[in-house]
């Protein structure tokens, strides 16, 4: 019994300790993005650009295919229910709203967490193990400014862009089902979608994606820096980065939805 309390207490304590260190790292990243440039420390746009290509451009095909399929799936599930009431046209509303408000940002974030959050953790972790982080410090290069900031900035720029793409392709998925299988006229579906999606829905989705971008980059970097030991440590941290960023993404999504739902 005591053991259980002890374990839970210890687990809770270490969770809080992790959280505190993640917040500290995020604070340092914020400092390096917003304050350090005014103190003569430049932001490395070239490295940021390289990361934007790796995190964003390279993810376009997979994000497209997955969100298109999800749009198609929702449309099929919705049509199955709505057809019985002769209300197939409302597939457009369902797909449009659920993709822009929820699934576009969420699925993009989960793909990027699996694809790039893990890569950030693995890269930084490998550098830590090989003393490369120490080498950076001895060259008077701050690892936050040199490694974390370009990745964070790239993430913040690219994830919302991917989310917009995901929104379009998700809707396109629903669209293709409606037009080719449900035989809803092109114009009717288009008009229905256009009236269903409010600008607000679309924007809340983008705000969420911004938060997800910060979560993925900071967790990835944090897990990378906390690697200890050799290759095994890198593997553990990489896994942990994916698991904990997906957890935090869903958790913050829940909070957001509660706020927007009540508002």
């Amino acid at each position: 019994m005591r053991n259980i309390f002890g374990k839970t207490g210890h687990g809770f304590y270490s969770f809080i300790a992790h959280l505190a260190r993640i917040l500290k790292l995020s604070g340092q990243s914020l400092y390096w993005i917003f304050i350090a440039p005014f103190k003569g420390k430049r932001i490395r746009w070239r490295l940021t650009f390289i990361q934007m290509v790796r995190i964003g451009v390279d993810a376009v095909p997979i994000v497209s295919i997955i969100t298109f399929s999800v749009g198609l799936i929702i449309a099929m599930q919705a049509a199955y229910q709505l057809e019985r009431f002769g209300a197939s046209i409302y597939v457009a509303d369902l797909v449009g709203v659920s993709i822009t408000r929820e699934l576009g940002p969420l699925i993009t974030a989960i793909i990027i967490a699996g694809r790039s959050g893990s890569a950030i953790a693995a890269e930084i972790g490998t550098m830590k193990v090989a003393e490369e982080i120490d080498a950076l410090k001895t060259m008077a290069l701050n690892p936050i400014g040199f490694l974390v900031v370009p990745r964070t900035l790239a993430m913040i720029i690219v994830v919302p862009c991917l989310t917009i793409l995901a929104d379009f392709l998700g809707i396109a998925g629903g669209f293709s089902l409606a037009v080719f299988s449900l035989k809803i006229p092109f114009i009717a579906y288009f008009n229905e979608t256009a009236t269903a999606i409010l600008l607000k829905d679309f924007l809340t989705g983008l705000v969420k994606s911004l938060v997800f971008a910060v979560i993925i980059s900071q967790i990835g970097a944090y897990q990378g820096f906390s690697v200890s030991g050799g290759a095994e440590g890198v593997g553990k941290s990489t896994t942990a980065s994916v698991v904990s960023s997906i957890f935090l993404i869903i958790f913050s999504d829940l909070i957001f939805t509660m706020i927007f739902f009540s508002a």
Binding site: M127, E131, D134, A135, T138
Partner: peptide
């Protein structure tokens, strides 16, 4: 510290090149 480090070279035991 960084100001001092700029004029110090360090060769690590494991080389520590950026791979």
């Amino acid at each position: 510290r960084e100001e001092v480090m700029k004029k110090i070279g360090m060769l690590f035991q494991g080389a520590a090149l950026f791979n």
